[in-house]
């Protein structure tokens, strides 16, 4: 999920210019990618490809990990034993996704520690969606339905992304995301059919999560730097606006089916396009959240930093013990 390009054109970073690469190798590489071959860790690759991938995969991994927090906020308050078990299992899955993705990114020569360090110092980004608070139980339904739903739309094409370890991680992850989406929609369905108070919770959650969910697909195509390059290298396989449209078209009928209304006065079916037209997204809000100004951005980062700081002694102990054991075994 969460592989959106989080910079706009003006912030585009200068990677090694492609012209500096060996033209023969570059041509061979591009031919392989164009033929839908997978690139593997030991294969030669342009420096810019490697950098783009590390940025994208680590950003994706960070999103999985930070994404554990908004939902983790409700595990201890889940309203039944079944809901508690499902939510705990889901949050655990997201941790597992983070783990596979860090491992995939490590094959490109950057350690998990370095990536986490980049996140905690604010150099690396994660999906904007996790900077919004979970206020009621219905938010757990909305996240599963909309956020995991959006993640699936983003990630299915990435199962065919050109970098082998990333594509394989995506295959495992996509299987679990569809269970996440279903459990979320099931929570929303139950609430929407429930008491007036439950229905209010459900509608309020949809009202708050709808627009941030549409922002998850990233900036509009005409302001999406690196997109063309990423498409050519098959790091990205469809444009932001294409995937966003597909999400809207799939989700609107789901909301109607359970009697909830999408908070968009401009939403209407367009016969000619065979798709929904929808209102303007507040990109100013999106870029503010990207800059770290989301409502609970500070809390999310503080939680991750303190988990890491408070756990330092544990990691040091595990290392010290492993070293002592190795010495003892060698002496035997």
């Amino acid at each position: 999920m969460y592989t959106t390009e989080l910079k706009d054109k003006s912030q585009k970073q200068a990677a090694t210019p492609l012209s500096a690469e060996d033209p023969e190798r570059l041509a061979a590489f591009e031919a392989r990618v164009a033929a839908d071959d997978f690139i593997e860790p030991k294969d030669w690759m342009p420096d810019a490809y490697r950098k783009t991938l590390v940025r994208q995969i680590s950003q994706h991994a960070h999103s999985e990990i930070v994404g554990m927090l908004p939902e983790g906020n409700w595990i201890t308050r889940a309203p039944s034993l079944r809901r508690k078990a499902v939510l705990l299992a889901k949050v655990q899955d997201e941790g597992g996704h983070g783990l596979y993705l860090y491992a995939a990114a490590e094959t490109l020569g950057t350690s998990r520690d370095e990536m986490v360090e980049a996140l905690h110092s604010g150099r690396a980004k994660y999906s904007t969606i996790f900077n919004y608070p979970t206020l009621t139980w219905a938010d757990i339904g909305a996240i599963g339905w909309l956020v995991d739903g959006a993640a699936i739309m983003n990630q299915v094409p990435l199962q065919r992304t050109s970098y082998g370890p990333y594509a394989r991680a995506m295959v495992r992850i996509c299987k679990e995301e569809s269970f996440h989406q279903r459990q979320g929609y099931e929570i929303m369905t139950t609430l929407a059919k429930g008491s007036a108070e439950q229905k209010r919770m459900a509608q309020d959650a949809l009202d708050r999560w709808w627009w941030p969910s549409l922002m998850m697909f990233g900036p509009p195509d005409d302001n999406s730097p690196n997109s063309a390059q990423s498409m050519r290298w098959r790091i990205k396989r469809e444009s932001n606006d294409e995937i966003r449209q597909r999400f809207v078209d799939a989700t609107v009928p789901q909301a109607e089916a359970i009697g909830l209304s999408i908070p968009d006065a401009d939403l209407k079916w367009n016969e000619a396009r065979d798709a929904y037209d929808f209102g303007a997204i507040d990109w100013e809000e999106f870029y503010a959240v990207v800059r770290g100004e989301g409502p609970v951005a500070k809390e999310r980062m503080a939680a991750r930093v303190s988990a890491r700081e408070d756990g330092r002694w544990v990691r040091e102990a595990a290392l010290a013990h492993a070293e002592k054991r190795a010495v003892r075994l060698a002496a035997e």
Partner: peptide, 19 residues
């Protein structure tokens, strides 16, 4: 144990405590 989810000292420990 579920209070630890998302806050454990290492990702691997987070997953194990959830298990």
């Amino acid at each position: 144990l579920s209070e630890w989810a998302g806050h454990a000292p290492m990702l691997e420990i987070d997953l194990a405590l959830s298990n």
